[in-house]
Design a binder for these strands. Structure first.
Length: 732
DNA sequence: GTAAAATATGTTTTT
DNA sequence: CATATTTTAC
C-alpha cells in the first residue's frame, strides 16, 4: 500500500482530474460536468489504486448500464492487463452477491430474475381473481405503485395505511387501494415461485450486506467502492454502496446533478447533493472543464440548463474553440423533418468525411424513430436503432427462454404458464388454473406436478392427453445437461417441435421471420457458451434478464448512424448530433406537468445537447403522426428559451416556425401529397401488396378505411396503419 | 373446454 | 401493426 503513483497515470490531466485520480483514503465525491473526462478519470483512478497495491479483485466499480460496465472493464484491462476488477451495474452486482451468499438470509439458490412483463402478468391474474376490471385498474399502474413503495421502504403490511389515494374516475377503484390489497398476494406468489424482480434484487442484496453476521464478509470484501452516475442512484442503491464500503469508508461517488434523468424510476438527487453531509470527511473534486464539445454547443447547453430553478449554480468551461453554431431544422411534417435530417447526414458523410458511427439522431420516445429509419433507408445510409426493439421481449424468444427458465427454476409460474400450452396441446385456461392450484396445494414444483398428473390423471379429455405429452418433454428437460446452452436450446426446439409450431401458427412468411429470431437466440447462446466456458444455464438466464438490449449482449459494432432515445444516449458522445422531435408534448413530454418534471425534461434536453462534439442540429416538425393520425405540432418551449444569437442564422424557434417555407428550402411535394386524403379511383402503392386502385372509401376521419384492389386481390385497409403511397397514373 | 378467428387497443423514459 | 382480449365454432 501507499506506493508512489506512476507518473504516466497523471499524464495530460488537469489539477482537478489529478486530485480525483490520486485521492487515496476515505470518501470522495467527484462532481463531473458533461464531457469533463469523467470516464478517463475513473479508469485511471482504478489503475492508480492497483498501482498503489490494492488487489484488483478487491475493487468494485458500479456503472449505470451493462454496456458501460463492459467498456470500463475493457479500459481497465488495457491499463492493467490481467487485472480482474469487478465492474458491473448495481443489479448485476446484487444478483451475483445473492447467488454467492443469498442462502445465508434464507434465499433459494435457484431464484429467477423476472422482468416487468412477468410482474404485470402476475398482477393481471390477481386483478382478475379479485374481480377488478383491468380497464379500470391498469396492472401496469399497480406494478409501478408497488415498485415506488418498495423503494420508499414500505412493506406489504405498511402499504395498507399509505393507500388513501382518491379514485381518478368516479366508480373506479383507487389505484393505491387496489395495489395495497394485491401486494401481499403478489409477494407470496413471488416467494413461492422464487422470483425476484429488479427492485427485490437490490432490496435483498441490501438485506444481505446489512445482516450483522451474514453480511460481515461482504462489508469488508472490497477495499474500494466506486459508483458512477451517482446522481441516478435511488435510496436502496446508495445504501447498498454505503454498506459495501462501511468497513473502511473508501467510497467514491461520481456524478453530475444536471444529468439526473431517472427520477421517475426512483433516482434520488439528494444522494449526491447531500453526500458531503453524510460523509463530512469527504473530499470533493469538481471537474468543470469540458473537453468534448465546441464552445458554440456548450453555450447552448448552458443557456438551457440555467433555466432550471432547482439547481446548484455551476459552470462548464469550454476547452475547445467556438466552432459552428447549432442549426435549427424545421419540416412541415415528420417525414419532411426526417428527410432534412437524412439529407444533412448524407452531406456530413459525403462532403465532410464524418464517419456514420460518429452521428446520432436522438429523440424522446422510441416511437419517434420510424420516419428517420425510412428516410435513412431511402438514402442507403446504414443505421441502427439502439434499444428499441427489445430482442428478448419477442414472443418466440420469451417462449424458449421460458423452457430454459423452467429447467433452472421449476417453480417459476410465469415460465410454466408460457410453456404449458405452447405449442397448443389442449391445456386451456381452465386446466391451467387447476394445475396452478394443485401445485400450490401439494407444494410441489411444476415439473413434478405434471409428471404426477401423467401418472394419476385428474384432468379430463384433451387436457389430460396434453398433460401426458407435456410430462414427457418435461422429463426430458429435467435430465438434459444444462451446458452448453446452445446445444440444449437446439435440442429443446426439435424435441418440442417449436419451429414447425411457428410456421403452422404464423404461416410461412411470418413464421420464417420468427424462426430467424429463434436462430439468433441459438447464436446468442452459442456466443455465451464460447465466452463463458464454465457458465451454466442459470448464468445465461441471469445475463439475459439483466440485459434488455440484444446489441448490448455483445453483438456487432458496425459503422452506422445511431438512432436512440435521449435516455439511451447518456454517457455517449458523437461528432454530430441531431436532436429530433423538439415539440411540445414530446419534449417536454405530455405527461410531465409539474415544474419538477419539466426540469427533468430540460435536463434530458441538456444531456442530448452535451452529447455533441462538433455539430449540433435541433429539429422539429409542424405536423406529426401520432396514433396513426397526423396532428399539428408546436415547437418545444425549450426552443423558445434559446437565445437567437447562439443559433446559426440567429433564428429562434418562433421565427423559424413563421418562416417555415424558407427554412425548409427544399421541394418535398411527394411527401406533402402523401398526407392528403384518398379518393376512390386513385392509384396507390402498398409496401406488401404493390400497386392497386382505390375502389371506395369507407367512413370518415379516425375510422376511415379504403377498399383497394391489388393484383393479389381486394383488401380493406385502415389508413391509420397501412402506409399507402399515391402513384401518379402514368406510372401505373 | 379448447382453438381459431375476429376485434380491440395502445405509446415515456429502463436496470 | 402487433399483441391482448373477446367472440365464435367445434
Amino acid at each position: 500500500m501507499d506506493r508512489p503513483l506512476p507518473p504516466a497515470l497523471l499524464d495530460g490531466l488537469n489539477d482537478a482530474q489529478r486530485a480525483a485520480v490520486s485521492h487515496q483514503h476515505g470518501p470522495l465525491l467527484i462532481v463531473a460536468g458533461a464531457g469533463s473526462g469523467k470516464t478517463r478519470v475513473i479508469t485511471r483512478r482504478i489503475a492508480a489504486l492497483v498501482a498503489r497495491g490494492v488487489a484488483p479483485h478487491r475493487l468494485l466499480a458500479i456503472t449505470f448500464t451493462n454496456k458501460a460496465a463492459r467498456e470500463m472493464a475493457a479500459r481497465v484491462e488495457q491499463l492493467l492487463p490481467g487485472s480482474h476488477a469487478w465492474v458491473s451495474t448495481f443489479h448485476a452486482a446484487a444478483a451475483k452477491l445473492l447467488r454467492l451468499g443469498g442462502e445465508a438470509i434464507g434465499l433459494s439458490r435457484d431464484f429467477t430474475i423476472c422482468d416487468r412483463d412477468d410482474l404485470v402478468a402476475i398482477v393481471r391474474r390477481l386483478l382478475k381473481a379479485h374481480g377488478h376490471d383491468p380497464k379500470e385498474v391498469r396492472p401496469e399502474g399497480v406494478v409501478e405503485q408497488i415498485s415506488l413503495w418498495k423503494n420508499h421502504g414500505l412493506s406489504p403490511e405498511s402499504a395498507k395505511q399509505e393507500a388513501h389515494e382518491p379514485a381518478w374516475r368516479p366508480g373506479a377503484a383507487a389505484l393505491g387501494t387496489v395495489a395495497s390489497e394485491l401486494w401481499p398476494e403478489l409477494a407470496t406468489t413471488m416467494r413461492e415461485g422464487r422470483l425476484l424482480d429488479f427492485d427485490d434484487l437490490l432490496l435483498e442484496a441490501r438485506r444481505l450486506v446489512a445482516d450483522p453476521i451474514a453480511g460481515a464478509p461482504w462489508r469488508s470484501r472490497f477495499e474500494h467502492v466506486l459508483v458512477d452516475e451517482y446522481q441516478d442512484t435511488n435510496k436502496v442503491q446508495s445504501e447498498l454502496a454505503d454498506l459495501l464500503a462501511s468497513g473502511h469508508g473508501n467510497l467514491a461517488a461520481c456524478g453530475d446533478p444536471d444529468q439526473s434523468i431517472y427520477a421517475w424510476r426512483g433516482a434520488d438527487l439528494s444522494n449526491i447533493l447531500e453526500f458531503t453531509r453524510r460523509y463530512p470527511t469527504a473530499t470533493m473534486v469538481r471537474l468543470e472543464q469540458n473537453y468534448r464539445s465546441k464552445g458554440a454547443i456548450l453555450a447552448v447547453a448552458s443557456a438551457v440548463i440555467e433555466k432550471n430553478v432547482h439547481r446548484v449554480e455551476r459552470g462548464l468551461v469550454p476547452v475547445l474553440d467556438y466552432g459552428e453554431r447549432p442549426r435549427l431544422l424545421f419540416g412541415w411534417t415528420d417525414n419532411d423533418e426526417a428527410e432534412l435530417v437524412a439529407r444533412e447526414i448524407f452531406r456530413l458523410i459525403a462532403d465532410h468525411g464524418v464517419r456514420s458511427r460518429e452521428i446520432a439522431v436522438l429523440y424522446r420516445t422510441n416511437a419517434l424513430s420510424r420516419p428517420f429509419e425510412a428516410a435513412l433507408r431511402a438514402r442507403g445510409i446504414a443505421y441502427r436503432v439502439v434499444g428499441a426493439l427489445e430482442f428478448y421481449a419477442r414472443k418466440e424468444v420469451k417462449d424458449l427462454l421460458a423452457w430454459l427458465r423452467l429447467k433452472a427454476n421449476p417453480r417459476d409460474p410465469e415460465a410454466f404458464l408460457r410453456v404449458v400450452n405452447t405449442p397448443p396441446r389442449g391445456i386451456g385456461e381452465v386446466a391451467q388454473g387447476q394445475l396452478l392450484q394443485a401445485a400450490r396445494e401439494a407444494g410441489v414444483d411444476y415439473c413434478t406436478l405434471v409428471e404426477d398428473e401423467a401418472r394419476r390423471p385428474r384432468l379430463k379429455g384433451v387436457a389430460g392427453k396434453g398433460a401426458v405429452a407435456l410430462a414427457a418433454w418435461l422429463r426430458w428437460l429435467r435430465s438434459a445437461p444444462d451446458r452448453p446452452v446452445a446445444a440444449l436450446l437446439q435440442e429443446l426446439i426439435s424435441v418440442v417441435g417449436y419451429e414447425s409450431h411457428l410456421t403452422e401458427a404464423y404461416g410461412e412468411i411470418d413464421g420464417g421471420e420468427r424462426i430467424d429470431n429463434v436462430r439468433e437466440l441459438i447464436a446468442d447462446a452459442n456466443d455465451f457458451d464460447v465466452t463463458n466456458p464454465e457458465g451454466g444455464l442459470a448464468r445465461f438466464l441471469e445475463e439475459r434478464a439483466l440485459v434488455q438490449d440484444a446489441d448490448d449482449a455483445g453483438a456487432e459494432r458496425t459503422d452506422a448512424v445511431s438512432l436512440m432515445t435521449l435516455h439511451a444516449a447518456k454517457g455517449l458522445e458523437f461528432a454530430a448530433v441531431f436532436l429530433a422531435g423538439l415539440e411540445e408534448t414530446r419534449l417536454p413530454h405530455r405527461r410531465a406537468d409539474s415544474p419538477l418534471e419539466i426540469e427533468e425534461e430540460r435536463r434530458l434536453f441538456y444531456v442530448g445537447i452535451t452529447r455533441a462534439r462538433e455539430r449540433l442540429y435541433l429539429s422539429h416538425a409542424g405536423q406529426r403522426f401520432v396514433f396513426g393520425r397526423s396532428e399539428p405540432a408546436t415547437p418545444s418551449r425549450f426552443l423558445h428559451d434559446l437565445p437567437p444569437h447562439l443559433i446559426d442564422g440567429g433564428v429562434a424557434a418562433d421565427e423559424t416556425f413563421d418562416a417555415a417555407p424558407r427554412a425548409v428550402q427544399v421541394v418535398l411535394d411527394d411527401e406533402v401529397a402523401e398526407s392528403e386524403g384518398f379518393v376512390a379511383g386513385e392509384r396507390v402503392e402498398h409496401e406488401k401488396f404493390g400497386v392497386g386502385k382505390i375502389l371506395d372509401v369507407v367512413g370518415r376521419g379516425r375510422s376511415s378505411r379504403v377498399r383497394v384492389v391489388f393484383r393479389s386481390g381486394e383488401k380493406l385497409l385502415d389508413l391509420n396503419y397501412a402506409r399507402l403511397k399515391k402513384v401518379r397514373s402514368h406510372e401505373f
